[in-house]
Design a protein around this nucleic acid. Sequence first.
DNA 1: AAAAAAAGAACGGGCGCTCGCTCAGAAAAT
DNA 2: ATTTTCTGAGCGAGCGCCCGTTCTTTTTTT
Lengths: 249, 249
Amino acid sequence: MALARQRPGMTAAFAMDALCARILERHRDSIKVQKPHLAVPNLTRIIGATLTLSNKHGFHATTLRQLAEASGLSMGGLYTYFDSKPTLLAMILGEVAETVNEVLTAPPADVRQDARKHLHWFIATHVRMSEAMQPWFVFSFMEAKSFPPAERQRAIDMEVMTERIIADIIKQGVAGGVFSVDQVTLTASLIKPLLQDWYVKRAKYRRRGTSIEAYINAVGTFVDAALSAPSRSRTTAGSRSKSRPMAHP
Amino acid sequence: MALARQRPGMTAAFAMDALCARILERHRDSIKVQKPHLAVPNLTRIIGATLTLSNKHGFHATTLRQLAEASGLSMGGLYTYFDSKPTLLAMILGEVAETVNEVLTAPPADVRQDARKHLHWFIATHVRMSEAMQPWFVFSFMEAKSFPPAERQRAIDMEVMTERIIADIIKQGVAGGVFSVDQVTLTASLIKPLLQDWYVKRAKYRRRGTSIEAYINAVGTFVDAALSAPSRSRTTAGSRSKSRPMAHP
DNA sequence: AAAAAAAGAACGGGCGCTCGCTCAGAAAAT
DNA sequence: ATTTTCTGAGCGAGCGCCCGTTCTTTTTTT
């Protein structure tokens, strides 16, 4: 709520109601309730309960009875909002995929020219979006393996897309002489988990009092240093990799 | 199999049989089968099937009937090896925790003195261990949220432990003037996900043909660069973080 | 009054788990 | 050496429960 006031444009767009209104739109045919003034609040409570319960016990382990209780609807009532449990899953995943796609592929004009600025924008935007939509991101990440094939493929495509964006920015920076990287794709795939850690291990960072600004800053510094480095200092790689077998003591 | 020949000391210790023999030892009281020559192969098939099925559909979604079929035992036979489904979970988690603990806290003597070498050893060892025990690591990571409280706490402790080891190495390097880092704990927590990515997204790296040596090398280079950097070049942090709200186009 | 929305009992099926049982092979008795 | 007894390992139908889903009925809205 406090955050909503600080960053109205961003947080309003990622608010539960807004996201659920979009879901309602996209699933107008399978949702039986027509009036938005009834459907939006109910759908919001249903999705909210789904995210909360699933992120605690897993989607599969979350039962429709728990969902009914937590959302304040009956079993039958639930089924006026989706026609099966997998559909409920698809609603959530689809909304995340669409939102991520819209946000990350639209960098502001002034940022596009400068690779370093673009990368920092990407880092900050990803972390902030995942903060505002944390339960959605955790849900998508953790439930990915149990998706039906179509959703599964979409999840993979999303991962590939974000990585390609990062790789393209790095390439641009290398071309412009700002960055010095020899394995662009591999480097890009190492940056991704730094962004994901913020929402996957959100509880840890909260416990430690790490602010989102501090995190964005740390990732930015870390990545900057790694990309700009001379990177010619480690020729001992081969010998290191052979140096020692691991064994139980 | 090919790998087993290349690194016998390491891979033998992480082989299914060896790990399951240790489980048998640790759960001698709750496992009803006494003869190891019967128990070890059976337990190995049970655990193997559990890892395979759970990593595909989730532990909760894996039924004992599937497990019986996949392991070649009957429903009743299964229950001579564990007294409940949660116990089966605990067996696997306990073994991972114990092994990780033993391996990572025992760096070779020649590595302890040199922070950079120690860090590289840690990276290589972690990645290689998670490669040899990939299904175990994936299981522990993905099922963590549905652990019973005791196991849950152990998982958190494990995460904290690895991070503290990394942080200690960094501190040592900073003290020795090898590294230059101002937020040691936060930096350490950024290195952890780089190690985890290898097993969490193993399929992606396999698809791309990224070798384990290439990955270890890339992480080593990346981390080295980030830790050794002058790190005083980014004073625009504050302005960047305020620069732009995100919104749907 | 008609239509839309919500309720909740009911259903078939699959879940984790149990328990009476079989039977090979070791131990004891002959 | 042969027979008998015993025991631990494994089997699988069956139990009670709760799952996702449906359907008739009631309530609310228009």
